[in-house]
Structure formats: structure tokens, C-alpha cells
Amino acid sequence: MTLRFSRKQLIIPYSLFMVLFVVIPLLFIVYYAFTDGSTGGFTFGNFLKFFSNSTSLSTLIISIGIAILTTVVCLLIAYPIAYILARSNFKKKNVLLMLFVLPMWINFVLRINALREFLDLIGLLNKAHLFNTVLGMVYDFLPFMILPLYTTLIKMDKSLIEASADLGGNAFTTFTKVTLPLSLPGIVSGITMVFMPTMTNYVISDTLGLGHITIIGKLIEDCFGSRNDWYLGSAIALVLLFIIFISMLFTGGFKDEENGARGAGIW
């Protein structure tokens, strides 16, 4: 008998990987989150502990606030850049795009520390902790907003813009009625890629907020580190997972994209 190798079998290594590195760790987190640290029994206590503590609640709210602020600022900066890059007839626009994306290739701890030194130099480091944190986040996550926007805009059929002009739309109405709605998938993709990591990236808030800004990622790190409370840490991680899940539902991240514009092509 010959050894048959069917296409279905190709899925085995991937399934193994998923089970080993996604499903099992997730089950561990769920197990810890619902386990009482002292008795080892089932409990909702970890969640109660989190939601009844005003410090951890305010940390959650600050995290969401910083994430929203960062996302909005990123969007406001990235959209015009992506639009101009996509529309310009400049032949070397890939080079320009590269310049915006280049910082991604440099170690981000290095970049954030450089920014910290710079803020220290201009005397802002000790004065505006929140501003510095948001600045660092925007600096770090801007390319993740530019790329999906650029991809959607460059892929947009230019004859649609012409059709709008042909039907009497001036530059402004063409933008609001055609370009903007059609670039929505890119906006959604950009938001997901900036909003979620911002909630947990405590390296930036630690380095630039000088410990005055605590975000939820820091809280989880503390639980697994200095406080050695894996049960509470897992519970917070689950809460975060839930928030992200809700926000994904909200932005339609799970929807089957008809045009596959979710940062497609470049990733």
C-alpha cells in the first residue's frame, strides 16, 4: 500500500500549533481566572476583586481613555498622509511610504527611550505625563494606522472618483460621499491595530509617564510579577479579552470582508 498524502493532512501542523500555543494557554488563563488562590476551588472572587477595587477600575478607564485618544490622534494624522501618498503622482511614493514605516524596524524600546531623552531635553518629561504617554503611543503605532489606510486608498478604483466628479460632485462631496465611505475598511483595520495594543503597552506608559500613568497591561504584569497573584492577573486578562472582543464586534472586525481590504496586501 502506498502512503497517501492528502491536502487535508496539511492542516495537522497548524492545528498542533494552535492547540499548543493558543488553546491550551487560553484554557490555563480561564482556569486561573476562576480559581480561588487559597482553596483551589471554583470562584468568581477574582473578578469581584478587580471590579470592587477603585484603583484597578480607574486603571481600566484610563487605559481605555488613552487607547481612544491615541487611536483618534493616529487616525487624524495618518489619513491625510495616506491620502496624499496614495493620490500623488510622485513616482517614488514607495520610498516616502517606507520613510513613514521605517521606525517600525528599529527596536521600539530604543525609540521610546530616545523620545524620553528628547522630552527630558526640552523639559517636558516631568511635566506632562499623560501627554507624553499618548505622544509615545502615537509615535509607536502611527505606521499601523498608515499602512491599512494607504492600502485601501491605493486600491480604490480611480474611476469612482471620476464618476463622482462627472455626476456633479466637487472635491469635498467626492471625499465625503465616495472616498471616505470606501476607505472605511482601512479605517476599521487601522483602529483595531492601534486601539488594542495601546491598552496593554505598558513599556511606553512606564518610560514616558514615569510611573504616574498605569495602564491595564501594567496591572497584569504586576499580578504575574511583583504581586505574584496569577489568579487575579488571569481574571484581568480575561476582562481585557472581553473588552477587545466587544470592540471588535463594534468595528466589524469579525465580519467576512467582501473586498478583503483589512490591511490586505501589505501584511
Binding site: 474611476s159 471620476e162 470606501l182
Partner: peptide, 12 residues
């Protein structure tokens, strides 16, 4: 007004 080669209808 123009009728475009690939129609250019607004997909949204």
C-alpha cells in the same frame, strides 16, 4: 455625463 468602460458604479 459619462458611462464608464468598467461602469464605475459606487459599490457602497
Amino acid at each position: 455625463n459619462t458611462v464608464f468602460q468598467r461602469y464605475a458604479l459606487f459599490p457602497h
